[in-house]
Design a protein around this nucleic acid. Structure first.
Lengths: 105, 105
DNA sequence: TTTATTTATTGATATATTTCTATATTATTA
DNA sequence: TAATAATATAGAAATATATCAATAAATAAA
């Protein structure tokens, strides 16, 4: 008795909106970035060195991934002393993670 | 009184699964492909020429987008005479579309 | 069998993305 | 101020992706 799909079909989305949607998906569409989102969900806001430690990526690469996600508003960044703490800022990051976590629907 | 996020945080996802997730997102992360998914949701299974007409893309490009989505199982394809009818095969395609359609959560 | 219709594939080119190495910036501590 | 720690950025090389033009393949109709 589970609902297969919640129908939301309505007015077609403008190509402009679709492009913004695609930009968000494009940024999330990377295993390391997904892992970063997952980590931030589990542990909450964290400084870069904790994140790169967890993900096991070089400093520059980690920083670049974090900045990409911050630029489009998926993450927020706040400097605290010599550290910069990143956190999930757009709940859609989690929603999309969830969408894929479930095997379906 | 709306739930901001449904917490699904559990065991961390394997890098392998994250890569498969990223592959699905990567394919969806394109305005034209999202539009195709939206169209197939609204109109149901359709032949290629109807889709390219609707999206306004050249035949080769449309065919290539459709094939990418079929390869990873997002769409299904069935030949009917000289036409090939495509349809949404993986409900996650719609779920992700929905995730972005809503402004948040 | 020839022709027309629909879809797929190939090769080339253009553009974008990822990663690396090295260096720069910002803040802290000696 | 000099040295250290944390993070960001720039430039280059490697890889991936998108699009186009042309052609191939599959089916149907004449």
């Amino acid at each position: 008795m589970t609902r297969k799909t919640i129908s939301r079909a309505g007015k077609p989305l403008s190509i402009d909106l679709l492009e913004r949607m695609a930009d968000i998906l494009k940024i999330l569409a990377h295993a390391h970035r997904l892992k970063i989102v997952e980590f931030l969900e589990a542990r909450g806001a964290s400084p870069v060195h904790k994140i790169m430690e967890e993900i096991g990526l070089p400093q520059a690469v980690t920083s670049q991934h974090l900045n990409q996600m911050r630029r489009i508003g998926l993450l927020s960044a706040e400097r605290r002393g010599q550290e910069v703490w990143y956190a999930i800022a757009d709940p859609r990051a989690l929603t999309i993670l969830d969408c894929i976590r479930r095997k379906e629907s």
